[in-house]
Design a protein around this nucleic acid. Structure first.
Length: 808
RNA sequence: GUCGGUGUGUUGGAAUGGUAGACGAGGCGGACUCAAAAUCCGUUGCCGGCGACGGCGUGUGGGUUCGAGUCCCACCACCGGCACCA
């Protein structure tokens, strides 16, 4: 029979659209399974070949779970706010909502073309006011709890586009779009206090089934370090506070460094005798972008604050204070105690500026290079009461000393920064706040949500970098919800991360107008059982959404502290030569082309078969044929099947083995070996011949992978008529463990650890018998000759190793 | 620099410390065909040998073990994240 995939796929997609076999049921008493993929950004380019990899994998898992009897929620939606759409709108003078609608339609037809079992009735769109009403609602709750605040922040400013850029838009220090210089500019921004949740975001990782590298990357990103905060007296009376992870080296602190932005300079201007030089340095540092500051890291720069000294609290020595941009104002206290003997950066700086270098941990030559001990077993020297202790002992001893003497305290610091939440852009959720001269920032009453994006004439930011909304005076001018006086709306919008931070909750109850999700729906569906997504979202989206979910937990909206029970991650699909797919390389594969040429089932099968799910793999157009051939072979079996509904004895063993292998592999996301097992089974079917009973197993096992063809074969074999169900609605096949085990086994025979032959033994044969059979083998006995067997090692049903010693 | 990952035939990739290369792609040989495609069957790690067979093989060098692709140590290469985080 010819495999007319185009007709088959069209036929079954129509059936699914009508019968909705993928609908998830709210209020069911079945056990639930919530599988989630990262919802796509509906770009103008349409679906990329990278999308089907995670989508197909979780689709397969969902289909199997459905056959296992679960009430499955496998939803889809669109993360549709974002810059590319806005830029397209600016360029072509089309409203972004129109562009978005068009793109979503295109994505929808492409996703349906691939036969995914999404519950389309739960489809969401983050740009729909009915959806972003609740994004705004969550923001208001954050604001009310003091977790959203406005502060002045240095931002990336493109001097040519005259607009604020996200960090991702700054490439090698220049604007990604126009290539012009990007500088730092102070702007007032809304911030979310994610750092308040830093410790919980680390601690709760332990209870989650996330792949290890995701956990590690999140932990590193949050960057917890423990140490002490110490107060240094200065000759001007004011104290300088530093954070250090190595309080044990306090005796070696021979100078201090503060960041250029540190308030100490401003507060002590009149005491600094070289204030002109200091001001000049500060001005120079402000001109540099973050990128330049880290690029120019090789050569340390700085200026000493003349006229002021600090006092080392334990040696009581006066030490100089420097200002330098190698100290970051955003980490710790923005000031450090420098221990040049044991820190590479401090050492480099000390050499350049002629500072004293005092060894406090023995073991290196600190005049030649900094001695930075890798473990904490170094011995303290030149350190008073710490002398002779190991570093490990000295750290708590010094912390105890500083606490007792009122010098400082133990302290934990995080690299994580608060989340810059404002964008001076049009195509995002308006921030639902009003500024009143008298009352300050006032939340819009919840009854007025959503604050809908108004129509504007132009989507371009203003010359001074304000959102285009700021030009809409009718919209901006309003009254204070608190006192009724004239007031102005916030014109900043939210970043793209906002809508995606809680979307998985909306799927549970997508049409609820009363609340973002009903407690009943959330209790039943939450948390997400399995969430797969890209590694590139580990430190942004994944962290942000965990933060929001913890907040929603704290205010009683959700019943679990974590949104996702399990997280896996897929590898990238590379071009033919193992290079990244890109338009400039011309190696981009469009899924439509593959579907046109080979069909959706082949596309699905091949993207799973191509290699280990977690690793990057390169696409090969040539190799797709193999997957197509396999489906051809499956269908052709229908023409050569015998009518028996029993399993044929010849195929019984391979069927049970394959059911076992495929069942286990799907749960482990090892779709490549599951498909290999199916191929092996079909190869045996060709060799042995098949009954309808045999093919029933093949169809059911195949149905998550190639759902269209599976339904077609199910119908052709008459099972649709006899069961009244589609294959996907049947129970997942079970296997009998006993039937997966063969009665006899071929095992390896080694002589002195080297393979010398194979023999066939009865299953679970005793060791003596195995050795006897092995010795009876001609090739083996030839190798042994007249040597003595000094030892035999038998691994049950696997191998026998004979250790021999030649006769003297 | 640092954290994480990877390194296996011509090629994509398989292998709970136990017969390396499953399953594909490509190649080669054969069947069918006027012929070609498609399909089916066989074969395919490298070296030596007509052959039986022997030797060598999982980035490099050591180690543990009866036995190492797999575990340990050192190194090299590539990929990804972070990067003056005190």
């Amino acid at each position: 029979m010819k495999y007319d995939f185009a007709a088959i796929e069209k036929k079954w997609q129509k059936v699914w659209d009508e019968k909705k076999p993928y609908a998830a049921v709210n209020g069911s008493d079945k056990p639930k399974c919530y599988g989630l993929i990262e919802f796509p950004y509906p770009s103008g380019q349409g679906l990329h070949v990278g999308h089907p990899r995670p989508f197909t994998a979780i689709d397969i898992v969902s289909r199997k779970k459905r056959m296992d009897g679960y009430n499955v929620l496998f939803p889809i939606g669109f993360d549709a706010f974002g810059l590319p759409t806005e830029n397209y709108a600016i360029k072509n003078h089309i409203h972004p909502a129109i562009v978005t609608k068009k793109n979503i339609e295109n994505f929808t037809s492409q996703l349906k073309m691939l036969g995914y079992g999404f519950d389309w009735d739960r489809c969401i769109d983050t740009t729909d006011p009915k959806y972003y009403k609740w994004t705004q609602w969550i923001f208001l709750q954050l604001f009310k709890k003091g977790l959203a605040y406005k502060t002045t922040m240095p931002v990336n400013w493109c001097t040519s586009c005259k607009c604020v850029l996200a960090n991702e838009e700054v490439v090698n220090g220049v604007c990604e779009r126009c290539g012009s210089e990007v500088v730092r500019k102070e702007k007032s921004q809304w911030m979310l206090a994610i750092t308040k949740y830093a410790q919980r975001l680390i601690d709760d990782l332990d209870s989650l089934d996330y792949i290890e590298r995701v956990k590690i990357q999140q932990k590193n990103w949050i960057g917890r370090s423990t140490g002490a905060e110490l107060n240094f007296d200065t000759t001007v009376g004011k104290k300088l506070t530093v954070f250090t992870t190595r309080p044990d080296t306090l005796y070696g602190a021979t100078y201090m460094v503060i960041a250029p932005e540190h308030a100490f300079v401003k507060e002590n201007r009149e005491k600094i005798t070289n204030i002109e030089a200091v001001d000049a340095y500060i001005a120079e540092a402000a001109k540099k972008s973050d990128f330049e500051r880290s690029e120019l890291a090789k050569e340390k720069t700085g200026v000493q604050l003349e006229g002021i000294k600090a006092i080392n609290p334990i040696t009581k020595k006066e030490i100089p204070i420097f200002i330098s941009d190698y100290v970051l104002v955003t980490y710790g206290t923005g000031a450090i105690m420098a221990v040049p003997a044991h820190d590479d950066r401090d050492w480099e700086f000390a050499k350049k500026f002629g500072c004293e270098i005092v060894e406090v941990v023995a073991g290196g030559d600190v005049q030649k290079e900094a001695f930075t001990v890798k473990d904490d077993s170094g011995i303290m020297v030149n350190s008073g009461f710490l002398n002779g202790m190991t570093v490990k002992e000295a750290i708590p001893a010094m912390i105890k000393w500083v606490c007792e003497n009122g010098i400082g305290e133990e302290k934990v610091n995080y690299k994580l920064r608060d989340w810059v939440f404002s964008r001076q852009r049009y195509w995002g959720e308006p921030i639902p706040l009003v500024y009143c001269e008298k009352c300050g920032w006032v939340p819009v009453p919840e009854s007025e949500l959503p604050i809908v994006l108004p129509q504007v004439d132009s989507y371009e930011p203003t010359d001074d970098g304000e959102s285009p909304l700021s030009k809409m005076t009718d919209w901006v001018n309003t009254t204070c919800p608190h006192c009724g006086a004239p007031a102005k709306r916030e014109t900043d919008t939210m970043p793209q991360w906002a809508g995606s931070s809680w979307y998985f909750l909306r799927y549970m109850d997508p049409n609820n107008d009363e609340c973002l999700v009903s407690p009943e729906a959330e209790q039943y569906w939450g948390p997400v059982d399995w969430y797969n997504g890209g590694m590139e979202h580990t430190t942004l989206h994944l962290l942000y959404s965990r933060f929001w979910h913890k907040f929603l937990y704290d205010i009683g909206v959700v019943h679990t502290p974590e949104p996702y029970a399990k997280r896996t991650s897929h590898g990238m699909i590379l071009g033919e030569g193992g290079e990244k797919m890109s338009k400039s390389r011309g190696n981009v594969v469009n899924p439509n082309d593959i579907v046109d040429q080979y069909g959706a089932d082949t596309m699905r099968l091949h993207i799973m078969f191509i290699g280990d799910f977690e690793k990057a793999v390169s696409w090969s157009n040539e190799a797709v044929k193999g997957s197509k051939r396999f489906l051809d072979r499956c269908l052709n079996l229908v023409d050569n099947v015998s009518d028996s509904l029993e399993i044929s004895p010849k195929n019984e063993s391979i069927i049970h083995k394959t059911v076992k292998k495929v069942s286990e592999d799907i749960e482990d996301l090892k779709m490549n070996t599951a498909i290999a097992a199916l191929m092996a089974m079909v190869n045996e079917f060709y060799a042995n011949g098949v009954t309808k009973g045999d093919l029933k197993y093949l169809v059911l096992l195949l149905s998550p992978f190639a759902p269209h063809l599976a339904e077609e074969m199910w119908e052709l074999l008459g099972f649709a008529a006899s069961s009244g169900k589609m294959a996907m609605q049947m129970s997942w096949p079970t296997y009998d463990e006993a039937k997966t085990i063969d009665a006899s086994k071929e095992i390896a025979v080694q002589v002195n650890g080297k393979l010398r032959g194979t023999v066939i033994i009865p299953l679970d044969a005793e060791n003596d018998e195995v050795v006897k059979i092995a010795l009876a083998n001609e090739k083996v006995s030839k190798f042994i000759g007249d040597a003595d067997i000094v030892k035999t090692i038998v691994v049950k049903n696997k191998l026998v190793n004979l250790i021999i010693k030649p006769k003297a």
